[in-house]
């Protein structure tokens, strides 16, 4: 894993700081590691980071929400938009273990829309496997 992407940070007006780090998980997979709360203030940063990854080339995306304690409807909307904008054959996986975030996904019925897995390995396996299946 080599960090080649620039850090894209933002500061939450509240007490929690927010940070998105881009890394390359594999030759065809980018990882966006999010730390802090994903809300109205930080959602735009996630949106630009996702757009940056998606616009570059046909790369799989893994969004690591392990460091996220809360995600609001605006940030969920960003993820939904990214999911719907995926090129054919490209997959997006969400790595998440936080109970609150998992419950929010479940409450909003969006858990059925994303591949939500507990670890990065699972996420990589999912996107790589789907690539193999597609290829």
């Amino acid at each position: 894993m080599q960090a080649i992407g620039a850090n894209q940070g933002d500061t939450d007006p509240g007490e929690v700081s927010f940070l998105i780090t881009r890394k390359e998980l594999a030759h065809d997979t980018s990882l966006l590691a999010v730390e802090g709360d994903l809300d109205l203030a930080s959602a735009p940063s996630l949106k630009w980071a996702l757009a940056d990854v998606q616009s570059a080339e046909s790369r799989h995306v893994v969004v690591d929400l392990s460091g996220v304690g809360f995600i609001d409807s605006t940030a969920l909307g960003v993820l939904v938009g990214a999911q719907r904008a995926l090129d054919p054959g490209v997959r997006l996986a969400v790595a998440c273990t936080d109970e609150n975030v998992l419950r929010i996904f479940e409450l909003t019925g969006l858990d059925g829309m994303f591949e939500i897995v507990p670890t990065l390995q699972d996420a990589l396996g999912f996107v790589q496997g789907s690539t193999t299946a597609a290829g």
């Binding site: 409807s73 939904v80 999911q83 719907r84 419950r103 479940e106 409450l107 909003t108 019925g109 969006l110 858990d111 059925g112 829309m113």
Partner: peptide, 28 residues
């Protein structure tokens, strides 16, 4: 994709959360 309503005298966790319907406009 919306929170379930609350009813007085009913456990707020009683409604089944699993398999909730997605919001309108999510593509599902």
């Amino acid at each position: 994709g919306h929170p379930h309503p609350l009813l007085s005298g009913l456990d707020p966790n009683a409604p089944i959360i699993a398999c909730s319907a997605p919001p309108i406009g999510a593509g599902r």
